[in-house]
Design a binder for these strands. Structure first.
Length: 524
RNA sequence: GCGCCUGUAGCUCAAUUGGAUAGAGCACCGGAUUUCUAAUCCGGUUGUUGAGGGUUCAAGUCCCUCCAGGCGUGCCA
């Protein structure tokens, strides 16, 4: 249980009410605050009511040392100083586990993300999904869920036919034949590379080899980006398994035939139009294997499914959920997060993104240009549903004075201090933390206390960017402290206390960075 | 046309889910080092939160109308 929950519980015991606590923006207003008096006041004065409430709250002064009323009726709480000092020891004791919790209670979750078509290299938008999805996996894991990650490979359908034709055409070109390149074919250079490789190995497995080759390269890119998947699922395998037929059997009663096709009555569930399940050609549409795939996820024992999809899949969600629900599976256990597009800019000029035309900036190129950590952080300081203008020139410029270096630098600085202290033979055997009483020290400690709460919020809201912003704030407080106070000084007692403080800061920065998959360097 | 998303400082984005004076970074200007890392710090400047109405003690946040942009609206995936 984190500090906030503990305080909520104490207030509840005193007042018989659950109050919402928040961290005031201004630290002068306390460590926690509630606006409960406003909501309960009705006709009365919130301030009077707040006074009455405060007199009822019974709390151990060793935990909360002060409760005051601020503004027009906010109730503000200050934690006891000694409690905070002890908390520092707690951070160091917990180490890499500090901030973790068990709110997930071992619940099994499957996060599916990226799932790009195997028709070309991953682009910048895929990178955004990868960074967000990967971080969500880490955060859920850290908060007590049992998490797996999965990548769905759409290796079936028109785009794959086109891929095959494109590779074949390039192959024939290499053979010296005059061929017409497919109109909507994939024009990227990688197609030629694949054709060349096939020719060397004297193989004509355009489709199979092409897919495998592209999936491999996507895998490598993701690995480079710090994202690995527990499982790769192929649509073609789902189709072969027979499970799409079983889905049709289950939802038959809500379907009808028209124009030689089989339709699902999705309008009964609020959709605009009914959707086709089986085309007049006898083939399933995309949605059927997709429903089958999601049922399969539940069958494998996952209690909660999270999908990160692009906005182009938005229209597809109602029919997917409808299908799941008709098959008597809990569609409300499927959470879909929309990761909005990335609009690429070079200065003011827009760069088109089309795999067909072969025009796009790949994730690999982005990593080459700005580096893995910078690219990740760029994506992780935005919430996923916001449209993102990604200016490559800006990103390159920012890579010099980027917030990610700002944070990493704090880590490196602390490591350097600790190394220095060690060369001086300083030991922190019996530190007296009550010497930490300067403004900058108190602000730092208070920030550390909130870390587990931020992690928890990032977990319940599925918002990794909370971690990023927390990191920026924590690093800022540290740099500020560093400029004003020397850690290693002639004052041996104070030195020991400050070494404990900065060690705790480093631990928290390091834990937070690992949640968003960014390195915490000891030197820079 | 209809549905979803977005609109916040010159630019890119936050805002603890309805709370206190709307915050960061970049950019711009000026300063700080005999010191544990200057990839740092301090100071300066920046807002009709797209517009208008409504609900509320309290609105960037909720409701309505309008404006602008993106995506969708396939027997594609």
């Amino acid at each position: 249980m984190n500090i906030k929950q503990k305080l909520v519980q104490i207030v509840k015991e005193s007042l018989g009410k659950t109050v919402e606590l928040s961290e005031p923006k201004d630290p002068k207003l306390g460590d926690y605050s509630t606006s409960i008096a406003f909501t309960l006041a009705k006709e009365k004065s919130p301030k009077d009511l707040a006074t009455k409430l405060v007199s009822k709250i019974k709390v151990d002064p060793k935990f909360v040392e002060r409760i005051e009323i601020g503004g027009a009726g906010f109730i503000n709480f200050w934690l006891n100083r000694d409690f905070i000092y002890n908390f520092l020891f707690g951070i160091l004791k917990e180490g890499t586990k500090f901030g973790s919790s068990s709110i997930g209670a071992g619940k099994r979750v499957l996060v599916e993300f990226v799932s790009a078509n195997p028709t070309g290299p991953l682009n910048v938008a895929n990178g955004r999904a990868a960074a967000i999805g990967g971080s969500i996996v880490r955060i859920l894991n850290f908060t007590g869920y049992e998490v797996d990650s999965e990548y769905y490979v759409d290796d079936y359908g028109r785009q794959i036919d086109l891929l095959e034709e494109s590779i074949k055409a390039r192959y024939q070109e290499l053979e010296g034949e005059k061929v017409k390149f497919p109109e909507d074919g994939y024009k990227g250079k990688y197609i030629k590379d694949i054709a060349r490789e096939l020719r060397i190995s004297k193989s004509r497995e355009f489709r199979k080899y092409g897919i495998q080759r592209i999936v491999d390269s996507q895998h490598n890119t993701l690995k480079r980006f710090g994202v690995e998947f527990g499982n790769w699922v192929y649509e073609s395998a789902i189709r072969k398994s027979g499970s799409p037929q079983r889905v049709i059997e289950k939802i038959k009663k809500l379907t009808y035939k028209k124009d030689g096709a089989l339709w699902l009555k999705t309008t009964k569930f609020g959709d605009e139009k009914d959707k086709v399940l089986i085309k007049s050609s006898g083939e399933f549409t995309y949605v059927v294997p997709d429903i089958a795939y999601h049922l399969n996820k539940f069958d494998r024992g996952y209690e909660w499914l999270i999908d990160l999809l692009g906005p182009d899949h938005l229209a597809h969600i109602p029919e997917l959920k409808t299908g799941i629900s008709i098959c008597n599976y809990p569609q409300d256990k499927l959470k879909v997060l929309i990761v909005q597009w990335v609009t690429l800019l070079k200065g003011k000029e827009k760069i088109g993104m089309s795999k067909r035309k072969g025009e796009f900036v790949t994730l690999d190129e982005l990593i080459d240009e700005v580096g893995r950590d910078v690219a990740r952080f760029f994506f992780l300081t935005r919430k996923c549903e916001s449209h993102l203008d990604f200016d490559i020139e800006l990103a390159k410029r920012e890579s010099k004075e980027n917030p990610v270096y700002y944070i990493q630098y704090a880590c490196a600085r602390i490591s350097s201090i600790l190394r220095f202290a060690e060369t001086q033979g300083i030991k922190t055997k019996f530190p007296n933390l009550s010497l930490l009483s300067r403004q900058e020290e108190l602000l730092l400690m208070r920030k550390l206390i909130h870390f587990p709460e931020i992690v928890e919020l990032a977990s319940t809201e599925l918002t990794p960017h909370y971690i990023s912003f927390y990191l920026i704030e924590l690093a800022a407080l540290f740099h500020n402290f560093y400029e004003k106070h020397k850690v290693v000084s002639d004052d041996s007692e104070l030195t020991q206390a400050r070494l404990i403080l900065v060690s705790a800061v480093r631990q928290v920065i390091s834990n937070a960075l690992s949640l968003i998959g960014i390195k915490a360097p000891e030197k820079m």
